[in-house]
Amino acid sequence: MNRKLFLHLLISILSVIAFVGIWHLFTAVLRVVSVNTLPDPMKVFTSFIKKFSNPNPDGATLLQHTAASLQVALTGYFYALIIGIPLGIMMAWNKYIDRFVRPLFDLLKPIPGVAWIPLMIVIFGLGIASKAAVVFFSAVVPCVLNSYTGIKQTKDVHLWVARTFGASHHQKLFTIAIPTALPHILTGVRVALGAAWVAIVAAELLGATRGLGFMIQQSRGIYRTDIIIVGMLAIGICGGILTSILTIISNFLLKGRR
């Protein structure tokens, strides 16, 4: 059993080596692909390291860009959580709110967050607020949707049990419906984070003076493909880390539920 596991790990490692090897072969050894199109892996690696301390060519170091992106993304995300989750819960719990809010929500839901960028810039200007608003629009949809489906999972039997104990409408919501919905709500929280991260990159591609999206867009203009790839990797790594943090938190919160 363990030997099999080791074998598969070995295949994976070989596969990565092959991938980087072919990349290196075509770029650095054979030079079929020009540096302006795709730099060799070593170059990307050194650029990645250098970018931590070197603000050239786009005016800020990698960590400064990352911090800028994170700041905006988390601002918008935070508002999406504190508005989206209660809204989804209320829509599922109260049929009057549902009837009035849902048509509007369904209307706005299919619009991708990116599409709001120009409008938000007109309303909020080019600063943090407009980008945070775009992030908000992207992240709020999964928050509402998942909270809503979560609450709808509540079993009638459980509600009946609560009623026989004389629980009030509010008590039923807080002691039965919300605990039932928790796994779904947490899924929404995670999906929303992914959406927020995508939205901030998009917003920075279109108009920003700092941030990872801005960094890769700037580098394109001057054909610094190494910096573009460094930026993409940073975006991927950051997104991955953020998601894993949330996964750990939600696993902790759902402990004992299977």
């Binding site: 598969h8 790990l9 295949i11 994976s12 596969s15 990565v16 991938f19 990116v114 992914g194 991260w197 995508v198 990159v201 998009a202 591609l205 990872l212 999206g213 890769i216 867009q217 580098s219 394109r220 493909t225 573009i228 790839i229 930026g231 993409m232 990797l233 975006i235 991927g236 790594i237 997104g239 991955g240 998601t243």
Partner: peptide, 22 residues
């Protein structure tokens, strides 16, 4: 899975929008 997983995991977290410049 063992062959493609690492490369797929490399691509997966990068949102398609971030590929626009490259």
């Amino acid at each position: 899975n063992s062959i493609f997983r690492p490369i797929y995991e490399l691509i997966r977290p990068i949102p398609p929008i971030a590929w626009i410049p490259i």
